[in-house]
Design a protein around this nucleic acid. Structure first.
Lengths: 146, 146
DNA sequence: TATTGTTATACTCTATAACTATA
DNA sequence: TATAGTTATAGAGTATAACAATA
């Protein structure tokens, strides 16, 4: 007889906690008319790992057509700049503007606030252990490693 | 100057890892024609915290109409039984069948397998620390605590 | 012909609103 | 009149497919 509970697996806990946290993060973004994927795109540009829309789509694991609409919105807000690549005029090169960096900083502050709420009451060692292991898991699963 | 990266916040890491893990779990469920929410409903029934469809909807934070379609599918598979509450014939009482328990056990095994993949290569202490702190976070955020 | 970006369309998931039956 | 469940409808989010410009 196996009495391991599905709800106590890491998979279940990461999935459900991830959904709760993403939901709360979204709520804080709502004022800007942005969704998590918009911010994901900004973080890609900040990291410098991709600049053309197609490369960004591959990196984010989303359809190229989605990058079009995310970029449309971010350009409209003045957070990014879209420029034709002069050496290959099919490509659009996206770059963060100063306003985009400020927006990203605002979102980072919101995320940091969420972190505080999440870890409030945890032992400092627990919090640090969590940060450490999540960094490892991120790296090993193709997510931004920093 | 603040150089904290959004991508290294707990909020970002939990959100993205949660999405990756949920996606992988979904892939393993696909063969049964089920999605994570179906399994979520099964875990509610197993826990005994709710039996009427409305109570289940509240507990899962989803619309009552969604519970109808989730239950339709699970009933079709023989995983749950739907019975009118005799003392209040408006209510449908959902119960896990033996087949439902077996299905849940299969899904639990799939999740445990995912856990192994995730933690393969981690120190045992790291893995245990992760389990421990995720349990705490789950409890503090209204998720199944066990 | 192949590739990048765009537009048009469709699909999945889920909520809201209208409805039925019980209370 | 209020509540549990159901059905009908609509919206958000995203993918796929068709298309245009460039290579």
């Amino acid at each position: 007889m196996n009495d391991v509970k599905l709800t106590s697996t890491l998979a279940f806990r990461l999935g459900t906690l991830g959904a709760v946290v993403t939901e709360r993060f979204s709520a804080r973004l709502a004022g800007h008319g942005l969704k998590p994927k918009h911010i994901g795109l900004l973080t890609v540009l900040e990291s410098g790992t991709a600049t053309s829309q197609l490369d960004i789509a591959k990196l984010m694991n989303v359809a190229p057509s989605l990058v079009v609409s995310l970029a449309d919105r971010l350009e409209e807000l003045g957070a990014i700049q879209r420029e034709r690549d002069l050496s290959d005029r099919r490509r659009q090169t996206l770059t963060l503007t100063e306003e985009g960096r400020e927006l990203l900083a605002t979102c980072t502050a919101a995320a940091a606030e969420l972190d505080s709420e999440l870890t409030d009451g945890l032992d400092p060692e627990e919090t640090e252990a969590l940060r450490s292991v999540l960094r490892t898991l991120a790296r090993r699963n193709g997510l931004p490693a920093d």
